[in-house]
Simulated assay, not measured.
Amino acid sequence: MTNPVMPKAHRILHINHETEMEYTFRIEADFVPEHGQFFQLSVPRVGECPISVSSFGEGWLEFTIRAVGKVTDELFSMRPGDELFLRGPYGKGWPVEELRGKHLVFVTGGTGLAPVKSWLNKLYDEPEMAESVHLIAGFKNEAGILFKPDLARWKERFSTHYTLDNDQIEGWNTGLVTKFIPEIPFDTFGGNYAVIIVGPPVMMHFAALEAVKCGVPEEKIWVSFERKMSCAVGKCGHCRIDETYVCLEGPVFPYTVAKNLLD
């Protein structure tokens, strides 16, 4: 019997410095996760942290990690060829098949782009999966822009609004992502659409409210609600909110459920 909480060592194949604070690690691994699932990444004698898969392919996984504590600081000191420990995948991913054939609207903030990156790449490679794809991707400033080659590529096929909170640079909008949600032509979708929102909790809260204000029914909104996930198998209770274990029932939730997940 496989131990679901036993991490195993995996070799780092490549590290891409997305920004000063975010690196993407490509790890040698044979897992085929669902889009939106997460793994626990660990460093012996230091700790572990939950990270969503940002991309995957034959024999590898990618994780885009922001430096926010002792575990990620240790990860940022590693080099290709080093080993880090993984366990997973865990949780429920995006309802990709359920939303097949719909108009899809993605609204992301900062590293919130990472949990939908693999799905966006699939939609790029298989355009028949969706009637249309609209992407509103926001970053705090120019220094925080992630996945620049992907952003340029997606712009060729998707309807995109790329925005910076305050900075003004050529080819980019300025303002919060909520500013651009009213520009999505929801009334032309014939009700056959879904809105996917990922980012900091405050951003998701106001983006969902703005979508509802634009006439989007709450049941058409999906979010990724990652928080305090430790054991990832529903035993430790760190991620529990009332009777909901985020690690088991999420991290992807319909907004009708997520809006009530308040501490």
Rank of each mutant, 00 (worst) to 15 (best):
F139C: 14
H35T: 03
V53G: 08
E83D: 04
P4Y: 00
E34D: 12
N16S: 01
K148W: 09
S42T: 13
F180P: 08
R153C: 05
N166L: 05
G237M: 11
H17K: 07
F253N: 02
T163Y: 06
H161A: 05
T244Y: 15
S132M: 06
G109D: 07
E20F: 14
T24D: 00
T163A: 08
F180D: 11
R100V: 02
W60C: 00
D263F: 12
N260Q: 09
N3H: 00
G199P: 05
V105C: 14
E156D: 14
V32K: 05
W94D: 02
V223Y: 04
H10A: 04
A29W: 12
P254D: 03
H238C: 13
I15C: 00
W172G: 01
G59D: 12
G215I: 15
P115I: 00
Q168D: 14
G175W: 06
N16W: 10
S118M: 07
V216I: 12
E34T: 10
A29Q: 03
V68Y: 11
L209Y: 06
R153Q: 14
E128T: 03
K8L: 04
V43M: 13
S42I: 11
L84K: 05
I65V: 09
G69M: 03
F253L: 00
G171H: 15
H35L: 00
T188F: 09
R153L: 08
G250Y: 04
I197T: 11
K235D: 06
K102R: 15
I181H: 10
G81I: 04
S52W: 07
G110Y: 01
S159E: 14
I181A: 10
I27C: 02
P127T: 12
L113I: 09
R45F: 15
P115A: 00
E226M: 04
P200A: 05
K117H: 10
A232D: 02
S159M: 08
L164M: 06
M1W: 09
L75E: 06
F106R: 05
A9G: 12
R157K: 14
I184T: 15
P200K: 03
K213A: 03
N3Y: 00
R153T: 15
T178M: 11
W119A: 05
P50D: 14
I184V: 15
V233L: 09
L123A: 04
M129A: 05
L113M: 08
E226T: 08
I221L: 13
V32C: 01
I145Y: 10
K122C: 10
L61A: 12
G250R: 01
E97Q: 08
G144S: 02
V223G: 01
E22I: 08
P115G: 02
H10S: 09
G191K: 00
R26S: 03
R240Q: 14
V195H: 02
D167P: 02
F158L: 12
F38G: 07
I12K: 07
T111R: 07
F39S: 04
G91C: 09
E226S: 10
K140I: 07
A194E: 09
L176S: 09
G215M: 10
Q40N: 14
C247L: 09
S55V: 13
E218Y: 06
E219T: 11
G36V: 01
F38Q: 08
L261A: 01
L13E: 06
E22C: 04
T244K: 02
A67T: 13
L248Y: 13
N260I: 08
R11Y: 12
V246N: 00
V43A: 12
L176Y: 05
L104Y: 01
R157W: 12
T2Y: 01
D263E: 05
